[in-house]
Measured scan of single mutants.
Amino acid sequence: MQFKLIINGKTLKGEITIEAVDAAEAEKFFKQYANDNGIDGEWTYDDATKTFTVTE
Rank of each mutant, 00 (worst) to 15 (best):
M1I: 08
M1E: 14
F3V: 02
F3M: 02
K4R: 09
K4C: 02
K4Y: 15
K4I: 08
L5Q: 00
I6R: 10
I6H: 14
I6T: 11
I7N: 01
I7D: 01
N8T: 11
N8W: 10
G9D: 08
G9N: 09
G9K: 13
G9H: 04
T11Y: 11
T11I: 05
L12Y: 10
L12D: 07
L12Q: 09
K13L: 08
K13E: 06
K13S: 11
G14M: 14
E15N: 13
E15I: 10
I16W: 06
I16L: 15
T17D: 08
T17F: 10
I18Q: 13
I18C: 03
E19Y: 04
E19P: 06
E19V: 02
E19D: 15
A20Y: 11
A20S: 10
V21W: 07
D22Q: 13
D22W: 07
A23I: 12
A23V: 13
A23C: 06
A23T: 12
E25T: 15
A26C: 02
K28E: 12
K28A: 13
K28G: 06
K28D: 03
F29Y: 04
F29H: 06
F30C: 02
F30V: 09
K31S: 08
Q32P: 02
Q32S: 07
Y33E: 01
Y33L: 02
N35D: 12
N35C: 04
N35W: 11
N35M: 13
D36A: 12
N37L: 05
G38P: 01
G38K: 14
G38I: 14
G38N: 06
G38C: 05
D40V: 06
D40F: 12
D40K: 09
D40P: 13
E42A: 15
E42L: 10
T44H: 14
T44W: 08
Y45T: 02
Y45K: 02
D46G: 05
D46H: 08
D47C: 06
A48Q: 15
A48L: 12
T49R: 10
T49I: 12
T49W: 07
T49C: 03
K50I: 07
K50Q: 06
T51M: 11
T51G: 03
T51I: 07
F52K: 00
T53P: 00
V54S: 02
T55E: 05
E56T: 13
E56H: 15
